[in-house]
């Protein structure tokens, strides 16, 4: 362990921070990937030149069980996974997979051509294509000259 002097105490803290980071990285979180307390389903958003891609991990969900709607700049994805519903609770030895109905509402990054949305579901990953709308034409805003005609703003009584 390095001994540090007053003059270099900040550096010592940096060392400590670095050590902590290194240690945290080396810890093997065996629960990593088991999603507890997080929103379901987890979502990633990617940007491409002409569209956004929203991907969500929805294993065990059929395309018929997913509903996507868009309104007011928000996209809503709704679904249900009920593949374990018929199994009595006391039969379970281990139960980690999320279940039941879910809903996510996400704000869209910018203007989207709402008529051209399409989505696909492959191997339990939902991909929603959100094509960007073309940049709108710059529009000149006319400015009305509201300066009153000369002579009318003379203070009365002069």
């Amino acid at each position: 362990m390095a001994v540090f002097r007053w003059g270099s105490s900040i550096d010592a803290f940096r060392d400590l921070e670095r050590e902590m980071d290194r240690w945290l990285r080396s810890v093997n979180f065996s629960m990593d990937g088991v999603r507890i307390g997080r929103q379901y389903p987890p979502v990633n958003i990617y940007e491409l030149e002409d569209e956004f891609l929203l991907t969500a991990e929805v294993p065990g969900t059929k395309a018929d069980d997913v509903e996507i709607s868009i309104a007011d700049g928000m996209v809503t994805i709704r679904g249900d996974r009920s593949d374990a519903a018929t199994i009595p609770e006391d039969r379970f030895r281990r139960c980690e997979r999320p279940r039941g109905a879910w809903e996510r509402v996400l704000a869209l990054p910018e203007r989207i051509r709402e008529d051209d949305l399409h989505a696909e579901l492959t191997h339990g990953v939902l991909t929603l294509h959100l094509p960007k709308s073309p940049p709108s034409q710059a529009r000149q805003i006319p400015i009305v000259d509201s300066e009153p005609p000369a002579g009318s703003n003379e203070a009365p009584g002069q």
Binding site: M31, R35, R91, R93, C95, E96, R97
Partner: peptide
């Protein structure tokens, strides 16, 4: 590498 969540049940 992720650890996938699992269910185990008896039939």
């Amino acid at each position: 590498v992720c650890t996938p969540p699992i269910d185990i049940y008896e039939d």
